[in-house]
Amino acid sequence: MLHIILKTASVFVLIVIGFILILFLPREKEVTVFSGFHIEADYPFSFELYLARIENFTDHILTERGFGEARTGRPVSEEAGKFVARSLKIVLPAFMVSMLLGTLMGAVQFYRRIKFTGKLQNFLSWMFSSIPDFFLFIAIQYLFILMMQHGLPHFKLYGHENWYSFLLPLISLSLFPFLHMSRFTSAALENEMGEEYVRTAYSKGLGDFKALLHMLWNCWSPIMNQAQLVMLYILSSLPIIEKLAGYNGAGKELLFSISSNDELKALSLMLPFLFIMFITIILSQTAKLWLVQKERV
């Protein structure tokens, strides 16, 4: 257990360093004014500059004992915290929906695989998992707009102020990971069908449902391994969906800070994301150890 945590933590540190190294590649503009009518802008790119920038950054972190103050005068970490908290309201439910409901749905799909409804469900989940989340989001909004034009009561589709603002992004973000988990669980269960213990379970007179529980318990290991992928998918799509929704969260701010070359802010927003990934890996590995019998690991 301790071994896994230490290993994951060292990987995490390496990845944070790697990300900082990419982030601080020189990308600043240097404007030289020759005269009133002659201005030249240049983007110098040299190794010395790169070193100086990294040195500058470490100095800044050491002297400020943190990220220091943002242009608004408030501490960067405080601002980042506000945005991240807003995004967590989407990320955590999306993750939970995908992992718990997705697994449950996969088990249901497997249970009914021979029946028509099961086949239909299989086809639909396969079909819908090809739909990109940004299209789903725009399509839902377009639909609402058209419906509002035809008499649906008006409500705000954009922004982050209303209590229901997080629902639309949440739905479009969780659809793909949810379907992925459902398909993955169903496939993992199908892999277990030929195992001997299933035959034993049936020979002891246990019904389909009890046998399914046996099989599900043996699938925890591959299912838990998907947690990282699900979280990565949610975090990858978060910036775009937040920006489309006008939801002022960490993802939207991250996009903005990267395109406006504000490295400190980008780092302060990216670090929580990396940390979420780290926690997800630790938790899923712990859950795996706890759920799976030793012999099958």
């Binding site: 995490f12 990845i15 790697g18 990300f19 990282q228 992928l229 990565l232 975090l235 990858s236 910036p239 775009i240 991250l254 990267i258 990216m270 990396l274 990934m277 780290f278």
Partner: peptide
Amino acid sequence: LLSYIPTII
């Protein structure tokens, strides 16, 4: 690295 950081970033 890529299993931590989204490709788009």
